[in-house]
Nucleic acid binder design. Structure first.
Lengths: 210, 210
DNA sequence: GGTTGTCCTGGTCGATTGTCCAAGTCAAGT
DNA sequence: ACTTGACTTGGACAATCGACCAGGACAACC
């Protein structure tokens, strides 16, 4: 067994916990299973983390960050008409979910666990705050790409984006119908396009017109 | 302890399991906790159910049926314009969820548990089949009340209704913002109204015109 | 080369879990 | 009254869990 500084060992254990929980569910992420996945002995976990809850909180933080990066990582930004931009963005978000079934299911397990166990109280709300913020950044991107603003409060739209993606993702996890999820999100994209309004002439846009 | 025929005892235990799981989460619904909630001794549970999974499956079936009855139970059916009918229907569905936080959270716990544990394999899909069917019946109601049909496949619309309600409900469970959920669902209602088209004259409608 | 402190090992403990069982209790039928 | 069968009781069991600990191993520094 390699000797590692405690900080690196923590990261390794967090990744091991993420692997176990994504593969077999959050209940399977026992201290023993995580230690085995990481290839270390049982005591190491309690040497690096005060207790199991601290490990789970760290894991939750890791998956939240990973989801955020994934969401904002590979968004297409080709300037076209509003509808196409929105469709492309939603398609990219959906592709990220479809290709990570285990972590996505784990996210929902973390949400419900957080709502039941006070030790994980902050996990769910942080998860959603991150997603709502990411959705607002997506709205920024659409605004800049398609030169539009919105006929509804941005916060409300961001919340809707997260809600709709969550809803279709959950259904897809249950029945595996990717096509239905795609179609549903495309329909939502068309709706989003209807609440986009041409942006007023602003400083930069005015400059490009001069 | 009263003596009861096994069938009635089963129902009582299912209700006890529902109470414990709704209040404290699905993990808290241990055989012992359920027995204590029902006021019976430990052995009774295994006298009435082969094992714990059978009890949980029965509980899941009960909550699915309850959700279905609740959804279709108190739908307003006053004939007005499409938008008002849809808004009223969504408001009724949302009210049912808002007033049953524990069971609603339990539903999501059951969904994720079902997706992880093969013993509960059928639970989630039955849950969703029920909800999709209920959503289609809601569409029926709107059609008859407002005399419209739809410019999209009914199945797709039903799936969207369930997805959107799921998504907003989940967010509401996390941050408790009822107003945001209401507003989001109202926005979805306005969208639904845009994909409703006036119904072609049919037999009964034609008769009422004669 | 000895010392110090970090990191790792593997066993052990008490608590909780699902499952099982031998015995007890009670109502109904003969 | 007595038997039969349905229902109940509460303890016992093995398995698994998080937590803890005494000690071994290793690298860095004096």
């Amino acid at each position: 067994m390699n000797r590692l500084p405690v900080a690196e060992r923590r990261e390794q254990l967090i990744e091991a916990a993420l692997a176990v929980a994504s593969r077999d569910g959050i209940d399977a992420a026992t201290v023993r299973a995580v230690a085995a996945e990481a290839g270390v002995s049982l005591g190491v976990v309690h040497y690096c983390f005060q207790d199991k809850d601290e490990l789970l909180r760290a894991m939750a933080h890791a998956i939240t960050s990973a989801n955020l990066e994934r969401s904002l990582g590979e968004l297409p930004a080709e300037a076209e008409d509003v509808e196409s931009v929105i469709e492309g963005v939603l398609e990219a978000l959906w592709a990220g979910i479809r290709d990570s079934r285990g972590p996505q299911l784990l996210s929902y397990e973390l949400t419900t666990s957080s709502l039941r166990h006070s030790e994980l109280n902050q996990v769910a709300i942080e998860q959603y705050r991150g997603q709502w913020a990411a959705a607002e950044q997506v709205l920024d991107l659409v605004e800049r790409s398609a030169h539009v603003s919105w006929s509804m409060p941005r916060g409300a739209i961001a919340r809707s984006i997260v809600a709709v993606i969550d809803g279709f993702s959950l259904a897809w996890l249950v029945d595996g119908d990717s096509e239905a999820a795609r179609n549903g999100l495309q329909g939502f994209g068309r709706y989003l396009a209807t609440i986009a309004v041409p942006a007023p002439i602003e400083a930069d846009a005015a400059a490009s017109l001069a």
